[in-house]
Design a protein around this nucleic acid. Sequence first.
DNA 1: CATTAATAGGTCAGTTCTTGGCCTATTTGG
DNA 2: CCAAATAGGCCAAGAACTGACCTATTAATG
Lengths: 244, 244
Amino acid sequence: MNASQRREGLIALLRSDRNPTMGDLALELGVSVRTVRRDVAALRLRGMDIEGERGRGGGIRFARFAPLPPLYLEEHEAVGLWLSVQLSHLVSGIPFSRGSQTAVNKVLASLPEQRRRNLRRLAERIIVAGTASENIRASMGETVPTLLSAFERCFSEGRCLGFDYQDRKGARTRRRIEPHGIFVDVPVWYIVALDLDKDAIRMFRMDRISNPRALRQGFEPSQEVLETFLAETDAPASRRLSGG
Amino acid sequence: MNASQRREGLIALLRSDRNPTMGDLALELGVSVRTVRRDVAALRLRGMDIEGERGRGGGIRFARFAPLPPLYLEEHEAVGLWLSVQLSHLVSGIPFSRGSQTAVNKVLASLPEQRRRNLRRLAERIIVAGTASENIRASMGETVPTLLSAFERCFSEGRCLGFDYQDRKGARTRRRIEPHGIFVDVPVWYIVALDLDKDAIRMFRMDRISNPRALRQGFEPSQEVLETFLAETDAPASRRLSGG
DNA sequence: CATTAATAGGTCAGTTCTTGGCCTATTTGG
DNA sequence: CCAAATAGGCCAAGAACTGACCTATTAATG
């Protein structure tokens, strides 16, 4: 029996037995007390709330009544968490950053199947490209405060988005788009979209958008639009859900 | 990371990713393909229904319903998650970033009481200051790969840390410190510490550290050291762990 | 139909990790 | 004060893991 099997057995024993001593468990599991002690320490490190009572008559047990609130994340929260971790990984070499990747994987894995599927579909439409050049940084303007909520809603619910757009030359035009993807080049981001009027795939920089509004019209989010766009623009390496 | 931790990570990945290849998983987990193969074999032995598809375009996946795993985050994972969200908030106005804050609060709230307390104590010792100037960015060097794991361990377990340090003028000295705090100025970070030999509070930049090693000697992590340091240096506004 | 990309798994040497024994410190009940 | 229990440091011997290299097999692609 290897360590991980034995630890599963230990958990089972802790569930059934009321208040065993380390000695009891050692006998039961056929290993030394020192090893049981180490196993318990390992389970505690893994986050299990096992309490020990010292002194004569003592023992260990799962902490009484720890009715943990079930983890319910809304879609935008789960996506936000995932995106935060991806973004922070652009800055490598910060303490605990490796842990954040495994953590977000665990969190996402602990969500119910249906939600996980939706999430994957959403995340596949988000490309974290890298960090913007000084030029772009310097030229970056403010984001209209109403854009975020309108865009988040349209992007995840599959609704078309309307806004006024100011292009590089300063010309303003009114647009109606299907927002299929997000392209992030920290701290700038772009909407990769099908322009309904021009019937062509276009990229819209967030700080050039004004008067955003969710439209009635829905659309079928498609990764294809994003793929096509990426293929055309010869984009750099990207981060996908649990993909590095 | 040991084998059982890695296998947990593997399960999480298999639940999140659609149909990864052994190669994908190996990259993600930082081990060889052969080891992933062995891990998958071990999980199958443990009764998990993981099916593999051979040939080009193949991969592996859970065959049917894999039971919902309980969410167990290790300390470094929880801290990493929290820190990632704090860091990503330095870049405001990215879609879904507001959701990430409430998400991380929910996740932390779902951890057992004991762990939440530890976590809060750890997070209180981390200061996310802001973004470094171009000057600092340009002068930034590489981080020694072994520093992260040694430092993470010493920082969270309350162990002293030893290393060689090269100061601004290029002089190299050997140091022994109590790492009380982390000061992050993206993408640079500093250890705020008590220098044991000089008996004074000092800040050490991560890219000037070499030959890090965990020392036997322990210490009592104290927020006071960090506070003192911050008061002395007139540091900018900081982010702390909220709500948890 | 050859090539390529994938799963699957055998073998072996080197290394790392686990284990048990022994130890100290601390807490608790009698 | 003593006995029993948790808690955990340290160390040597041994077990298990890991990566490299290998073969076999399967499936898609051109």
